Amino acid sequence: MSVTMRDVAKQAGVSLQSVSNVLNGRTSQMREETRQRILQAIRELNYQPNLQARSLRMRCTKTMAFLTIDPAARFLSDPFHVAILSGMVETLRQEDYGLLVHGFHPKQAGGGFRRLAHQHRFDGAVVHLSGSAVSRAEHIEELVSTGSPFVLIEDCVSAPTAACVLADDQGGAFAAVAYLQSRGNQRIGFLATDRLWPAVEKRIAGYEAAIRAGGGGWSQVWEVERETVEGACERVEAVLRDDPKVTAILCANDVLALGASQAAKRLGRSVPASLSIVGFDDFDFARYVDPPLTTVSLPGAEMGGRAAELLLGYLKDGQFAASELVFPTVLIHRGTA
């Protein structure tokens, strides 16, 4: 038979309320001798609180969520998601919080956030959305309607229960193109995943703005069908065969940049002498490939950690400490440009 709070109260010779006060840290008005007697009874009886029932009473689950709408079957292996999750976990475990991860396919996402919120499985969520601007706005409206606090990654929102954590994607892309132009490159293309991620939209905007600012009359955005090294390699190989005058490529992320580098090797194009390549994100592998990737760095793990901090602060204070955090991006010079 399991030990109950009533058993602890009887063993310590106190009321149920006193035991509850100790378990919930409400001991400022309690005599130290009484607190110690209750703690001793808990140890002697090996009492284990029913955390699920306690959470239901307190409307607190001690769980945060990472929610994403991502068409990729292996969305959890995405290096950016790995970085965000790592930062979240590092922050949450210091506060004894667990993490729920849930990925929606775009075709099945309608109403998903509302259903999850009504199940009371988490206290707040970090959310990363793909989709058109219109569909993302619809999902954000749904999130707001749940009344649960959430933090958007790489997208903007304005609501009392919402905050956003962003990187300067547009500025990072602009700086990368300006650097490539300063090295004499005139035909600089952009290799993109689909445009359904807000960060990719901003990186393309930064690329196009830099081309215009540099007086260039040529620009081209190539999209890959598969966001993999192999998919990027095949796309870039086809592009370079069709237009060998391309001398530089800015890539939407480092996975695509690695594929671009592989394509150059297949075609006998020396990197960076014959083809300069710049990635984005500075994933962990970027410095270890051959040649090491020149890339635009953004602090994914720190972004995830700060998003979790914002949620914890909201639960404590009833409001976000900041409605928007923007992290700088930095061009990291290595061997591909």
Rank of each mutant, 00 (worst) to 15 (best):
S145A: 09
G217L: 09
G318F: 06
A167V: 13
S145R: 07
A252P: 00
L23V: 11
A213G: 09
L275N: 00
S2N: 13
A117Q: 04
V144I: 13
P292A: 08
D242E: 14
A41H: 00
V278K: 00
A209D: 07
C156M: 08
V127E: 15
Q36P: 03
G313C: 04
S86K: 07
A73G: 11
A125G: 13
I188R: 01
K62H: 15
E95V: 05
N24V: 02
Q319S: 11
T193C: 01
E33A: 15
V14M: 13
Q186Y: 15
T294S: 00
E142Q: 03
L67C: 04
G111N: 14
V271D: 00
V82G: 00
T34F: 10
E230M: 15
T329L: 02
Q119T: 11
V255A: 00
R35T: 07
G214V: 04
L152K: 01
P49Q: 04
D78G: 07
T27A: 12
R266K: 11
Y288C: 13
E142F: 04
F80C: 11
T295D: 06
Y179S: 08
L152Q: 05
R212K: 11
R306P: 02
D317A: 14
A210L: 06
R195I: 09
V151A: 08
V19S: 01
N253Y: 03
I188A: 04
V271F: 02
A273R: 15
A308L: 09
Q40R: 12
V246G: 00
S86Y: 09
E138W: 10
S55V: 02
L315M: 10
S77P: 03
G131A: 15
T27G: 08
S261I: 13
V278D: 02
P149D: 06
Y288S: 14
E90Y: 12
C251V: 13
F80E: 04
R287W: 01
S274Q: 14
K245I: 07
S297N: 10
T294K: 04
L85V: 12
H120C: 13
V246K: 00
T193L: 07
R93F: 11
A117W: 07
V144M: 04
R266T: 11
A301R: 02
A175V: 05
G268T: 08
F174A: 06
A9K: 12
L331R: 06
E90N: 12
S158W: 06
E201V: 14
N46V: 09
L267G: 04
R266H: 12
V8A: 05
P149A: 10
P71M: 15
S18E: 08
V127S: 07
V144A: 09
S135L: 14
V14N: 10
G87K: 03
A133D: 14
K62M: 11
H118F: 10
A9R: 05
A248T: 01
V255T: 04
G216L: 10
A178E: 13
H118W: 12
G335Q: 06
